[in-house]
Design a protein around this nucleic acid. Structure first.
Lengths: 233, 233
DNA sequence: CGTGACTTAAAAGTCATACTTAATCGCCGT
DNA sequence: ACGGCGATTAAGTATGACTTTTAAGTCACG
């Protein structure tokens, strides 16, 4: 029996998860375990484990005598990294990207303000390094190298905030930035204004100027929103 | 075989989840399925399903020949509502409450600003109703009634923002507010200043004044932070 | 003495099957 | 028309046999 993933349940999950989040099964649709058993040619055990996981993500609900019903979008655990990844890979990627960018615009400025208070000298150094890295790679089609620094920069900010909820958004930001680079203005170099803002945020944090760090990060966020044509107040 | 919950796997989950998030099993500890089988007196099937769910929450990782190892805190899906509930019920409730309050302070002002743009007339009405409800119940030990309006108010703001990520934080805010009422200043009536701020937020949203709605909500958040002695910039 | 290839065994993963439980549907009687 | 009651269906649970991965121990060889 050949296997490709890290377990059969994972394989089933990687098939059902994207399908559900993509809306292939509209809310209210019913899946039956024995049907899935046949479709994936695996045992009951495997299907049930996959279902349990989908259930914990609130993508589906399992009820006796009726089957596994797909839940409406409002029920989904949209903060589950797995769900985020599936949705970003699927059809409503644009919508998802907007949602996440708005979330970023709320969180990152506050995180930067906290980082200005709490960042260790090492973190300040990392921040500066990556900001300078962004400058160095901001011209001449080095978008991938630029992206690495950009992601790292925002990750450090979020981690330095000392708030675990913020820190855990690092992956989300990484996905958003990656998505942006690879699916939008692939050809043009990054906006020089944005690059400068990053350098100045690093400065502000180093100088423990929370208000300035926050304000500057808010400008970066505004830029990101503008790129996606999101209404900016 | 007697059952109390909605399924045996749920019962196991409700026992293991809180234990792990409370730090009863330090990171790196190993659980073996057959040991758990005996401990809970259930079949492998049930244990495995519970493990799969814990795994999807990144509380544990299962590896062959070694067992189910508890992951360090940084790995946990701290946005999973279930995980949040477990942690709020456990030992590091205070820490968790702080993290969540900081998150609120970042998100809610932005949500309020968006709500000012997007709230429907019905939502504006709900907002006003609940704000007035807060006023009406703000004096004379009617804390439970007050709490209901407070929660509803913040829920409407988050939903009106038109951002699904924000909307899904409604439950979190509800937990935080409930926790605050039931575990802190249970005896004193709510701060009149906070009550007034809610009324004014409702006004600002109704008048489509995004900047004012955001600023006022920021004041509410600052108050919540102050209650928990969180450094305010 | 070290190192690399080989063996072993422990624990998770999978499967098949039998059985239990709960809830929906429809029949039947009032 | 309606309400209860049994039949039926699909999920839930239990169990035992078997497979796969892999840490760890062993042994021979350099």
């Amino acid at each position: 029996m050949e296997n490709q993933g890290q377990g059969l349940h994972a394989r089933v999950l990687q098939s059902l998860g994207p399908a559900i989040t993509a809306g292939e099964y509209p809310p209210g649709s019913v899946l039956r375990t024995d049907e899935l058993e046949q479709r994936f040619d695996v045992s009951r055990t495997v299907i049930r484990e996959a279902i349990r996981v989908l259930e914990s993500m609130r993508l589906v609900a399992s009820r006796r005598r009726v089957g596994v019903t797909v839940l409406p979008t409002e029920e989904w655990n949209v903060y589950d990294p797995q769900v985020i990844r599936w949705r970003l890979a699927g059809a409503d990627r644009p919508r998802q990207l907007r949602s996440l960018t708005v979330l970023r615009s709320a969180v990152e400025p506050v995180a930067a303000g906290l980082a200005a208070h709490l960042a260790t000298p090492e973190q300040c150094a990392e921040l500066t390094d990556h900001a300078l890295g962004m400058v160095a790679t901001s011209r001449g089609q080095q978008l991938d190298a630029y992206l690495v620094h950009d992601i790292a920069f925002h990750r450090v900010i979020l981690r330095s905030s000392g708030n675990e909820m913020f820190a855990r958004l690092g992956d989300v930001v990484a996905e958003v930035l990656t998505g942006r680079t690879h699916h939008q203005v692939m050809f043009t170099d990054p906006d020089p204004a944005a690059v400068t803002l990053h350098v100045r945020v690093a400065e502000a944090v180093r100088e423990r100027d929370a208000a300035r760090a926050e304000a500057l990060t808010r400008e970066i966020a505004a830029g990101a929103m503008a790129e996606l044509d999101i209404l900016a107040p």
